[in-house]
Amino acid sequence: MRRWRYFGYRLAFALPVVFGILVLNFFLIQLAPGDAASVLAGESGAASPEYTAMLREKFGLDRPLLEQFLAYIGNAVQFNLGYSFRNDSPVFELILARLGPTLLLMLTAFGAALTLGTALGVLAAVARNSWRDAVISVITLICYATPVFWLGLMLIVVFSVNLNWLPTSGFESIAEGYEGWERWVDIGRHLVMPGTALGLFYLALYTRVMRASMLEQTGMDYVVTARAKGQTERKIVFGHMLRNAFLPVLTMAGVQAGNLIGGSVVVETVFGWPGLGTLAFNALQSRDLNLLLGIFFISACLVVAINLAVELLTITLDPRIQA
């Protein structure tokens, strides 16, 4: 199987990448002024040098950097990302609890942006220079230019406050005690606005790229060949051009998967979404380094995983790529 062998290669390349991120993250954090001990001591109101030194000793922050680093790597390999003293709970458990909502938000926004963007791009290209094309162009331009946080706030003002259609924030209505199917519908209702806020920019981007890519395919010889076979225009567009035009969009989307995590910090904060983004933000505020490193590591793994998935999709769609 050509496809799986190639995938194996890629996987083998991904491991050193993850390790590199681990190393980079650790030393990057060390460069930031202040450590957990000084913050804890400051908050407890007893910031005497003796107390801080005691805290440092307790947490192992007084040991040589290399020793701390090796301990960190050793633990990370076993998915032991340390203990968050601020939250009084293991980092891995904290992250695990938040990973679900973040994945749900990201994948929904990403998937919707990709499919809808592709569809709109095809529509605009097929109806080139018509009113439909113009409308799509204007809408994408607006989506492209709107800041995410402003869009989020406006969505809340319009759809929650004024129209009262959707919940303002949160992941689900815990107080209602929904079960099973009803619970998922409830989560879905909570997901609509953050997903829209996060995905709209990418939707606009993919629409534009897909439109350009489709127009490029229009002039290709194989399209003329298909026409010379007597194929209908509709089947030429969907049977021949779509897949060829989609490949560059997919490549770009794969590169951008990482931006999506960054973007989710803002969206999660605006909508009170209990995901990795808010967790990271809080960890940063309170200098919870263990937690922050853990989040960095998991996010990096996530980006690598999404890239691998996109790559697998690409080699499935394009037979020209060889192992």
Binding site: M220, D221, Y222, V224, T225, N244, D318, R320
Partner: peptide, 13 residues
């Protein structure tokens, strides 16, 4: 009909 450049005249996918 057949064309000059069979590489581009065939759908690569």
């Amino acid at each position: 009909m057949i064309f000059q450049e069979p590489m581009t005249a065939l759908n690569p996918l």
